[in-house]
Design a protein around this nucleic acid. Structure first.
Lengths: 199, 199
DNA sequence: GTCTATACCGTGATAGAC
DNA sequence: GTCTATCACGGTATAGAC
């Protein structure tokens, strides 16, 4: 049974987490105070602790929820019957889509994973990193084996370049701006697959 | 006249700045305390203030010194008589070389420019950013005009991808590791210019 | 050039009234 | 569910002895 109060509580919780995510992304986790979050939410700092144990719990919930969704998308691509090149393209497109829909979460993960990863509570961040590497390496290996990609590729370096260039776009991409995430993904894939030199 | 004391002072100053740069790069500027810097230097926190006005002065000196050198290198490339493609290659190589020789400084600029840029004292960071954009846009424009690069390039997006991929490498590149900065630059230029797809 | 001592403030978190 | 009041801690920076 779901009462009206339960739902209101969940909505409020999500609302507060959204406000916190925006601040964590903009100013950094440690650099954002619980008073900042409370001010932006129109309540007092003490009231936040009615909803959450601690500031850590807030960022924990933000990151784990997001990653569950993202890796679900990657798994769908890996499990599909598409050819290697299409899968690689899909993975890039899904990543830019994540930047579009969850830019705060992406930014937090990019900026704070190193710092947070030092606490046992956030050990899963390192696991997710390894999981992400596995996805891209698989896609690149399949691409080379199927002949879609150059045989002389340095897979490890190529992985790093793709990963870095995709996620760092969160620093400048703004949803609702002149560039759509589809356009950015297309242009990026054009550069990545075909290069920028003439002929 | 340069006395022995002056020189010892400069050495000590440079030594302390180097230690601070490592901590700022690793933990972030705000997240690094003056006590952290003092501990790592084997002195008391109060003693730091004999050498520097404030924590801000330290990061200021670290960043401005580094950028003066980096943009000197870019200017040399722009002023050279090389063709467009060679200039672009040289700019990429010089950037990876900067990551190799000054990774702390690069990391600090990458991670803290947004935060520090909000203070008037660090307004020059935004100017340096604009200057950097001007360098890359010039190189790309010349490349397209001379026929070295594809005529259908989205110059602005290409600039962002190059900038991002080059500088984000500071997150994983380690001097003295198995990869040299020359090797990384070569591989990156190969991907950038020729793409990763087969044929 | 480094030390000790300390002023002063912002921080995360708690307790209990409403 | 929010408020006020409060606490213990750690932060930057200063003063003055050695």
């Amino acid at each position: 049974m779901t009462t009206r109060e339960d739902e209101a509580g969940r909505n409020r919780r999500a609302e507060l987490l959204g406000i916190a995510a925006g601040l964590f992304a903009e100013k950094g986790f440690k650099n954002t105070t619980v008073r900042d979050i409370a001010d932006a939410s129109g309540i007092q700092s003490g009231s936040l602790y009615h909803h959450f144990d601690s500031k850590e719990s807030m960022v924990d919930e933000i990151l784990s929820t997001f990653q569950e969704e993202l890796f679900g998308s990657y798994d769908q691509i890996l499990d599909s019957v598409d050819d290697a090149r299409t899968k690689l393209e899909r993975a890039v497109q899904v990543s830019f889509e994540a930047i579009d829909r969850h830019r705060h979460e992406v930014a937090i993960f990019q900026n704070e994973a190193d710092y947070l990863g030092a606490f046992e509570r956030f050990a899963y961040l390192a696991e997710r990193n390894a999981q992400s590497r596995a996805v891209w390496i698989t896609l690149l290996d399949d691409g080379v084996r199927s002949g879609a990609l150059r045989a002389d590729l340095d897979i490890e370096l190529t992985y790093r370049f793709i990963r870095d260039t995709v996620w760092v776009a969160v620093k400048w991409y703004r949803p609702g701006g002149t560039l759509t995430h589809e356009h950015v993904a297309d242009q990026y894939l054009h550069i990545l697959l075909d290069g920028i030199s003439h002929g």
